[in-house]
């Protein structure tokens, strides 16, 4: 259904050609997209009014329309070609930078954005981004640390246990000051967890390698390991091998949702003494005479 051009232009059917022109000019001034850059609604209205005006522009066209001989599709000869001017200037065009005395525009920006002489302008403060290194230990257990932002502002950062590299902690309202009535921006602190030389993180579990001596491997024994928060005694059962994986319950990363720590897995590596003396050789020789086995059988 085609809209009534008289209605679009807000005039009666008895309007004079001059009234039509006046009504159109009024609307064109109001809705021209270059005077309302980026306003889709204005652009739509401008198009509508242009189409409506095109149908009633001359007495001949108007007569045809009034007699039902013309509709918009046939008639709209004045369809605009090419983009609107503002669309060519969106990322800064030749005219944007070269027309007129723009040398002093920098000063205008200064005054606008520093909030001096611009009481009517309200901008939200800028968001600020920082990076923070977190010790592996703090990642496992969680911690509270204070950081100093450039400019001297101090922030208390609560590091939740289990945080991963790349996660951003947000501090609402701690960023740049807003201008006018604009609210302050936020501070984002991106976390980078320092790797541990000892522990590897697998989900909420930790894994570490542990060298054991021949006698510990064969006979078993207690070994002290420096766990992150406290030393623990690991009980090695007799007969472990390189690659054996021992589990220490709930010594991994804290899972805040479950309020439970993951496990620590200790991967063993059997290490022979650096020098194999005659005594060892002799005892193994003796032992192997009656206990030969093939470790490559599988």
């Amino acid at each position: 259904m085609i809209q009534d051009p008289y209605q679009i232009l807000g005039i009666s059917k008895s309007a004079t050609q001059d009234d039509i022109k006046k009504a159109y000019r009024k609307l064109a001034k109001k809705f021209h997209p270059d005077l309302n850059p980026g306003n889709q609604e204005a652009e739509k209205k401008f198009k509508e009014t242009s189409e409506a005006y095109d149908m009633l522009e001359t007495a001949e066209k108007r007569e045809k329309y009034d007699q039902g001989e013309l509709d918009q599709a046939q008639n709209f000869s004045g369809r605009r070609q090419g983009p609107f001017y503002y669309e060519t200037q969106q990322d800064g065009g030749r005219y944007t930078y070269s027309t007129g005395n723009f040398e002093n525009m920098g000063d205008i920006f200064e005054s606008l954005f520093k909030g001096k002489s611009s009481s009517e302008m309200h901008f939200r403060g800028e968001d600020q981004f920082y990076q923070m290194d977190v010790d592996f230990q703090d990642m496992v257990l969680g911690a509270e640390r204070e950081i100093t932002l450039p400019g001297g502002k101090k922030l208390k950062v609560r590091i939740p246990p289990g945080i991963e590299t790349g996660k951003k902690l947000r501090f609402t309202g701690q960023g740049g000051t807003g201008m006018g009535k604009g609210s302050p921006g936020d501070v984002y602190v991106e976390v980078r967890v320092n790797p541990s030389p000892v522990f590897r993180r697998i989900g909420n579990d930790l894994e570490m390698d542990l060298s054991v001596s021949l006698n510990e491997a064969v006979l078993g024994g207690d070994v002290q390991i420096n766990m992150i928060d406290q030393p623990i005694t690991l009980k090695i059962p007799p007969g472990v091998n390189t690659g054996s994986r021992l589990r220490v319950k709930e010594k991994g990363v804290m899972d805040t949702a479950r309020q439970k720590r993951g496990n620590l897995y200790v991967v063993l590596k059997v290490v022979l003494p650096t020098t194999i003396d005659e005594e060892l050789k002799e005892s193994v020789r003796k032992w192997s005479q009656t206990h030969a086995y093939n470790p490559r059988k599988d």
Partner: peptide, 18 residues
């Protein structure tokens, strides 16, 4: 394209908006 768009704007200012 910038010139043409600017030109179109000038024409519209003069012809359509007086």
């Amino acid at each position: 394209q910038e010139d043409v768009a600017r030109l179109s704007l000038i024409c519209e200012l003069q012809e359509k908006m007086g």
